[in-house]
Computed example of a mutant assay.
Amino acid sequence: MRLHHLLLVLFFLVLSAGSGFTQGVRNRLSCHRNKGVCVRTRCPRHMRQIGTCHGPPVKCCRKK
């Protein structure tokens, strides 16, 4: 029975941790709200992509 409780807690942790990365950054305003910048090329080394700004060619990047 304890194992079920532990698995349930782990399941909720995974869901809550993943929700921050699936907010759907798809425009310039939401990119800036998430502390990101829009770039037309690949994200620099010290940044990671968190979404797009105006479609696939323009990426929203944030510091790691």
Rank of each mutant, 00 (worst) to 15 (best):
G20K: 09
L29C: 07
P57M: 05
F12S: 07
R26H: 10
L13R: 12
G20D: 07
G51D: 01
G20S: 08
F12C: 13
R28S: 06
G20I: 08
G36E: 04
R2M: 15
G51H: 01
S30F: 11
F21Q: 10
L10R: 09
P56H: 07
F12R: 02
L8V: 14
V9E: 12
G51N: 01
H54V: 08
L15F: 07
K64N: 08
C43P: 02
V14A: 14
C31D: 01
F11W: 13
G24T: 02
V58R: 02
T41M: 10
H4F: 11
V37H: 01
F11H: 10
V25T: 03
L29I: 14
V25L: 06
L13P: 11
C60D: 00
T41V: 05
L10H: 13
H5V: 12
V14W: 03
H32R: 13
G55S: 03
R2W: 12
Q49T: 08
V25F: 02
R2V: 10
S16Q: 14
H5P: 00
F21S: 10
V25A: 03
L7E: 11
V39F: 06
H46K: 11
L6I: 15
H32V: 14
L3T: 14
C43V: 02
F12D: 04
F21G: 08
S16E: 09
L13S: 14
R28Q: 13
L6W: 05
T22L: 08
P56F: 04
H32E: 15
L6R: 05
V39S: 00
V58Q: 03
C31V: 05
Q49I: 08
M47N: 06
F21H: 03
L10F: 15
L6H: 07
G24E: 03
Q23E: 01
T41S: 12
P44R: 03
C43F: 04
G20R: 08
V9G: 14
F11C: 07
Q23L: 01
R33T: 13
V37P: 01
L13G: 15
Q23K: 10
P44I: 09
A17R: 06
Q23V: 03
R42N: 10
N34I: 01
R33W: 15
V58G: 00
R45I: 01
H5M: 15
H54W: 12
K59Y: 08
G51C: 00
R28L: 10
P57D: 05
K35H: 15
R42E: 11
R26M: 14
H32K: 13
M47Q: 09
G51A: 05
L29A: 12
R62N: 11
K35N: 09
C38R: 06
R26W: 06
L13D: 06
S19F: 03
F12Y: 11
G20H: 09
C38H: 07
Q49G: 06
G18R: 07
R2T: 08
N27C: 10
T22G: 03
K35R: 15
R26P: 00
F12W: 08
I50K: 11
M47V: 06
S30K: 10
P57V: 04
